[in-house]
Design a protein around this nucleic acid. Sequence first.
DNA 1: TTTTATTATAATAATTATATCAAATATAGT
DNA 2: ACTATATTTGATATAATTATTATAATAAAA
Lengths: 231, 231
Amino acid sequence: MKQVIFVVEDDAGIMGLYAMALENAGFEFCGFNSAEDMFASFANGKRCDLIILDIMLPGMSGLDALARLKQSSDYSAIPVIIASAKDDEKNKIGGLDAGADDYVSKPFSMNELVARIRANLRKAPVAAEKEGDVLAYGDIVINDREHEVHVNGQPVQLTLKEYNLLHLLMENIDTVVKRDRILSVVWDYDYVGETRTLDMHIKSLRSKLGEKTDKQYIVTVRGVGYKFSKI
Amino acid sequence: MKQVIFVVEDDAGIMGLYAMALENAGFEFCGFNSAEDMFASFANGKRCDLIILDIMLPGMSGLDALARLKQSSDYSAIPVIIASAKDDEKNKIGGLDAGADDYVSKPFSMNELVARIRANLRKAPVAAEKEGDVLAYGDIVINDREHEVHVNGQPVQLTLKEYNLLHLLMENIDTVVKRDRILSVVWDYDYVGETRTLDMHIKSLRSKLGEKTDKQYIVTVRGVGYKFSKI
DNA sequence: TTTTATTATAATAATTATATCAAATATAGT
DNA sequence: ACTATATTTGATATAATTATTATAATAAAA
C-alpha cells in the first residue's frame, strides 16, 4: 500500500513538480491549493502519512495551518515538512518551533525532498508498530509480550542476548546503532578494550534469521556499528 | 575521529595528569585554567563531547559554570562530570542537582575517570543524533542517522573516512575548509608536514560521487583546502 | 619559458575491523 | 551434582580500509 503525501502549494507549476517527483518515488500524491482545502479533505475522512506545507499561502498561512494540525489530537502525529521560498533562518526556526518535523527551503532538489520525506516517515512507524508489543519488518516479527520471534511465520528460538540485540536493532530500523551503544544497552558494559562477544551474537543471530531466508537484514557499518535494514 | 574532552582545572600538576590519562585513553584533551577561558573557547567555535569541571576554581566557580552550561540551549546536552577535592556529600548532591551528569571526588584513579567518561559519553548520542538527520545539496544527500549517502537517488558505498570527509565538507557548503582543519577533524592529526592521504580520499570520494554524474562537487582551492560547491 | 610548489593519480604496503572458530566458563533446569 | 544450554573469551582468518610511496600533472611564480 503506497504511502500518501499531501502537498499544500498554491503555485501550479511547482505543484506539477511535486506530483511528478512523488509519483516517481512511489508515493501517492495528493495536492491542495490551500490549507483550507486540505482540512476539508480531512473532514471528509481522507488520510495521509505526511504533509508538505508551503509557508506562503493565500488565506490561512502555512504556519497557522501547522499550528492547527499540531494542536489537533487526530493529526498531530502526522509528520509535517515546511517548504519555503525564503532561505530565511528566522522562518526556519519559527517553523520548527511551531512543531514542524523538518524544513526545506526552495529551491531544493527533488532528491533532497524525497530523502527528507523518507527520513520523516521513518520516525513515525515505530510508534505505530509498537502497539501490541509487536515490532515487525518484512519477514521478521518480534513480539515483546510473548517474547517470541517469527521468521516467515515460523517461530525461531533466540537466546536472551540474541533477542535483546535484535530488539534494539529493530527498534532503530534503518538507523545505525553504534557498537558502544549496543554494548551498553544489551550488555551493561562500561567495557574497556576488545571483545568479540557482540560479533558472536550478531553471527548467531544472522544465522538464525538467515536459516529461513537469504535476505540480509543486519547490515554491518564498518567503523560504526550495525543497523537493521529494510533494503 | 577522537572525542574531545574539555578539562577545567586550575592546578597545573593535576592538569598534567588529566592530559596524560586522557590522551592515553584515546581522547583529545583540551585544558582550561578557568571556566571563563572555556567559555571564550566556546565562543570561538571550539566544540567538545564532554566536560570535566573542577568545583574549586578561581573566578567563576565550577557550580556557576555548570549552571550556565545547563541553561544554554547550545551546550546543555554536553555531559559534565564534576570533580572535587572535597569528598563532601553535600557538595556532591549539590552538583548533581545543578545538572551535572556525574561526579568524581579526588583523589580518584584515572581508570575510574576514564570509565566514567566512557559511560557518560554513551548516554549522549541519542540527543546528538536527533539534530539534522539529512544534509543535502543537489543530487547528493547524506543521511547521518542511516549513515548512508545517495547520489541521484542511488546509494553509494563510502568508507568511514570518506563519509566523514564528505560530511565535513557538506556541513560547510560553499566554504573552503583548510587542509589542516580537515586533517584535524577527520583524522586525529596535529601532524605537520607532507601527507598525500587527504588527497587520496578526496580522489576516491570524487570518483564515487562522480561515477553517477559529471558535475564537480568538490573543488580544490589551491594552497588552502577544499570546498563543497553548489556551483 | 623555466622553475617551484602544490595537488592528482596509481600501485603497493600496512593497518584495522569484523567474522569465524574452538574452547572455556557460566547459568539454569533436573 | 549433572546436563544441557548460553555466554564469553582468545586465537586466527578474512576482508576492508587506510597510509605510503613514487611519479605525473598542473597551476602559480619568477
